[in-house]
Write a protein that binds this DNA or RNA. Structure first.
Lengths: 202, 202
DNA sequence: CTACTTAGTGCCAGTCACTGACGTAACGCG
DNA sequence: CGCGTTACGTCAGTGACTGGCACTAAGTAG
């Protein structure tokens, strides 16, 4: 009787409850000190149901990354044709900022838990890599050279990541402002790039 | 009696045997289809001993990353004083190339297993992040701005990583040649960086 | 040669993440 | 109302990982 009868058996409902319960417990007593059984209990479902909705204990905090990835890939594809690789990325990041800004109430505690939990940081890095690869692929579809696409995606994401961190630390400015700042930094960095060198193979 | 009596009880010995056995089994039947008990059995030790040498089933393939991290940090610290951030990194990467080149016989199958195993790719990304952070810290110690250091480390590592991939795919050229190529690409990318923009906050 | 110390190991019991199989309750539809 | 589909509960397992304790092979001091 732990499951409210009035609630329709929607699946999405249990899913949301599990995510909420997991985030709460991870914050209260830490990721390692939380069992999947406890999460399920707080969400009012069976432990088995937890694993029907999420492949593992970590993934419960990483829902929606697929959406971000898809949105970024689409934004890259739709960017104006006359832009250079990094300009395309700046355009794309600015276009998906809203997804993060609207999600801040959930995103902030989530980022905190991830930051203090090695296992979750690992998963976060994997998600980042997945997104970066999707962005690189989107760039290639626009005709950007193979090697250059991967490099640009990594570099651009580094700036984006930098912006998000600054935004979390200093919410007095918008994420957009932090993003533009980060790309300015990137420009400064580029200005100090090492000069071309003679290669042994040449 | 599975443990040869002539072999001194050195610890390092068992450690090496476990690494070898793990790599073999992961290649033969896959990471997920291999149990830690099987690894221990092939190495001629108890399963418990496996976990005394390695914190988990993955880490057995990631020994030595700490050495690479330390070597890179040292190389960054010892780079000529008049270099710019990315020049410092190129200098540092060229200095530690040998570590990878000497290890190729072990590194190649290892990279293959990692490439086809999601769980191992995750751990690999975590190691990469750890190294990147150490490099950024080393840059900061040289007086590089906080934000710039992280950005430079990420960007530089992206080039290094790119070089390693190219090197694995095409061993006809040295790792050094691939590395110089990657940094040339980086320079080309920099040349197309988006121009400074007016920021709302200004 | 003995006693003491230290490191590396074997063995055992236990927790917990995760899975497969099977039965059941809640819908959606004709 | 019957009926298929979907989400869920229950149970029995496998395997990664841990703590505790005893044992054995060194080295070291006396």
């Amino acid at each position: 009787m732990r499951y409210p009868r009035r609630v329709p058996r929607s699946g999405a409902e249990a899913r949301r409850r599990l995510q909420q319960a997991a985030l709460e417990l991870y914050r209260e007593r830490g990721f390692d000190q939380t069992t999947t059984a406890e999460i399920a209990a707080r969400a009012g479902v069976n432990e088995r149901t937890f694993f029907r909705h999420f492949p593992d204990k970590r993934e419960v905090l990483f829902d929606g990354e697929a959406d971000l990835r898809a949105a970024l890939a689409r934004a890259v594809a739709e960017a104006p044709a006359d832009l250079q690789p990094l300009e395309i990325l700046l355009f794309a990041f600015r276009k998906v900022e809203r997804i993060l800004e609207d999600n801040r109430p959930f995103a902030e505690p989530r980022l905190h838990v991830i930051a203090v939990t090695p296992a979750l940081r690992e998963r976060d890095l994997a998600k980042t890599a997945s997104i970066t690869e999707a962005v690189a692929e989107a760039l290639r579809r626009r005709g950007v050279t193979d090697r250059l696409a991967g490099l640009a995606a990594h570099t651009g994401w580094a700036a984006f990541h930098q912006a998000i961190q600054s935004w979390i630390d200093d919410s007095s400015q918008s994420l957009d402002a932090h993003l533009l700042q980060a790309f300015d930094d990137l420009r400064a960095l580029s200005a100090t790039a090492p000069p071309a060198q003679a290669r042994p193979g040449d």
